[in-house]
Design a binder for these strands. Structure first.
Length: 505
DNA sequence: GCGATCACGT
DNA sequence: ACGTGATCGCA
């Protein structure tokens, strides 16, 4: 039960075939549960009412150490735990078998436990001095912005408080209210951008928000997590997301900035040991490729086979212009539609994204579905399947139940429909990269390459490798990732390397 | 401790 | 669509 933490200590001795993890089995049976605790599972799967460990040690500040727990109570808890585990195992494995999840469980998720444990244990070196320096740079500008904002407002207030900021903008300065939230005025980036022309304070606030985020989350936040050896060991969770993706925490290494150059600089702080480099591989358009495969849409499959720029190709089809004549705006609109389709689009959502009317958004979508006719069929079919079965599946039979499809509330049902479409796409992409991770891990060991997998960012893998083995690892990573599964179209992988995470782009 | 808001990623 | 985390302000 939750064996990843134990693998830290048993690492050298445990081999692939001789461990099991019931939290993983439970996750595959129902990935939407918020946590996997043995007392709850005993109730769900065996209808047994049990005391939890928490009943023994308490919670919060007064939590007891195990050594302080009454020995008799502890003993009976442990014996209950052991016999329960065996009963639970039998029950869960029968579910896994019934649902055709044996391959997913034994060949992907279980081996992956060890891969993730290895990534957590290895961690990643951080250049602390660089981070501190970058932080000081940001802080200097933040101090100036703070003064500037106070002078525009006419008084000092807490800029971080949306409530106080709303009062300044919409009551003191009388700027037009663009949007309201449940609790008051909306002050998010989207709103602020629309207010940009109306007062100089707006640009200062936007800049303040950006720099504040970078300092608090990515600089101060990281510095406190650096170990004595100068590393960060974040956790890679295997039973959190409803779609099968991995999540990362303490710190989250899956949302390090990249879009703006300033934020991207954070990545220069992540470095390999001496004489090592990073080799990175990322799937190009993996979710759209998965959609092309799942729907069997020949137009989209053909576009990918030609290795065309998919957004330009989409624009040329949707707007009925030659490939060469697609304008940057047309391409960026087509890109938004492609994104929207993967997320299970609504005309409302797309109209928000593109800041156009709902009617225009609907026209874009209709044009899109006229172009990719089999995607239209697929969208209708998958929702139908979800309603009929109560769940949808990925290519490796990962399953997600969608009770929202039965809701009488239109909004909730609409959400369920988007989930029904997005889950097989996002989840199959997760299946694919997980297969690649398990294979890479095994190949690096068997070929005795001096490389270790250290990061996964949904469609991207980063390996830390001794300089002499860079070329071989690049080749291996490219092959393993692109052949992880066989679809009706090729998977494309881009490979890079460098001396910091920033450079492995 | 917790919901709400905001911002970062794929 | 899927996440994590910082902060505020209230309980």
């Amino acid at each position: 039960y939750d064996i990843k933490s134990d693998l830290y200590y048993l690492f050298e001795d445990v081999n692939f075939k001789n461990y099991e993890d019931l939290t993983i089995a439970e996750y595959l049976i129902d990935p939407s549960r918020s946590k996997y605790e043995i007392d709850k599972s005993a109730k769900i799967y065996l209808n047994r009412n049990l005391h939890s460990l928490e009943d023994l040690v308490g919670k919060g500040k007064k939590t007891l150490s195990l050594s302080d727990v009454d020995k008799e109570k502890l003993g009976s808890y442990i014996s209950m735990y052991l016999s329960l585990t065996e009963d639970l195992r039998e029950k869960l494995l029968s579910y896994i078998d019934e649902r055709d999840m044996k391959e997913l469980y034994y060949d992907i998720e279980l081996p992956l436990v060890k891969v993730l444990a290895s990534m957590e244990r290895e961690g990643i070196y951080v250049n602390k001095d660089y981070l501190i320096e970058l932080g000081e740079e940001f802080q200097k500008e933040l101090d100036e912005l703070e003064k500037e904002i106070y002078s525009y407002a006419g008084y000092e207030f807490n800029i971080n408080s949306t409530k106080q900021l709303g009062e300044v903008l919409f009551e003191k300065l009388n700027l037009p209210v663009i949007k309201k939230t449940k609790t008051g005025y909306s002050t998010n980036a989207e709103v602020l951008h629309k207010l940009k022309g109306s007062h100089e304070i707006i640009e200062a606030i936007l800049r303040y928000r950006t720099l504040k985020k970078l300092t608090t989350t990515y600089i101060d936040g990281f510095i406190t997590l650096i170990s004595e050896e100068g590393k960060i060991h974040s956790l890679f969770n295997q039973n959190i997301t409803a779609t099968g993706r991995i999540s990362s925490q303490d710190p989250n290494l899956q949302n390090i900035p990249i879009k703006t150059e300033e934020g991207r600089k954070i990545r220069k702080a992540f470095i390999p040991p001496e004489n090592y480099s990073f080799v990175g591989g990322d799937y190009s358009q993996v979710e759209l490729r998965v959609l092309a495969h799942l729907s069997g849409d020949e137009v989209m499959i053909e576009a990918f086979k030609e290795d065309a720029d998919i957004h330009t190709k989409t624009a040329s089809e949707v707007f009925h212009v030659d490939f060469e004549d697609v304008t940057p705006l047309q391409r960026s609109n087509a890109k938004a539609v492609n994104f929207g389709i993967v997320y299970g689009i609504s005309d409302y959502g797309l109209s928000q994204d593109l800041d156009i009317s709902r009617k225009e958004a609907k026209e874009y979508i209709d044009n899109y579905l006229d172009t990719y006719k089999e995607i239209k069929t697929y969208m209708a079919d998958i929702v139908e399947t979800g309603k009929k079965q109560g769940y949808v599946e990925t290519i490796m039979h990962r399953r997600r139940y969608i009770p929202e499809l039965e809701s009488k509330n239109r909004n909730i049902r609409g959400f369920g429909e988007r989930v029904a479409l997005n889950t097989p796409i996002q989840g199959s992409a997760a299946d694919i990269i997980k297969i690649a991770m398990v294979e890479i891990y095994q190949e690096l060991q068997e070929k005795q390459l001096r490389g270790k997998l250290i990061l996964q960012v949904h469609d991207e893998l980063i390996i830390q490798v001794e300089d002499g083995d860079i070329d071989e690892v690049k080749e291996l990573l490219s092959n393993v990732m692109s052949h992880a599964v066989e679809l009706d179209l090729p998977l494309k992988v881009d490979i890079n390397s460098g001396k910091t995470w920033y450079d492995a782009k």
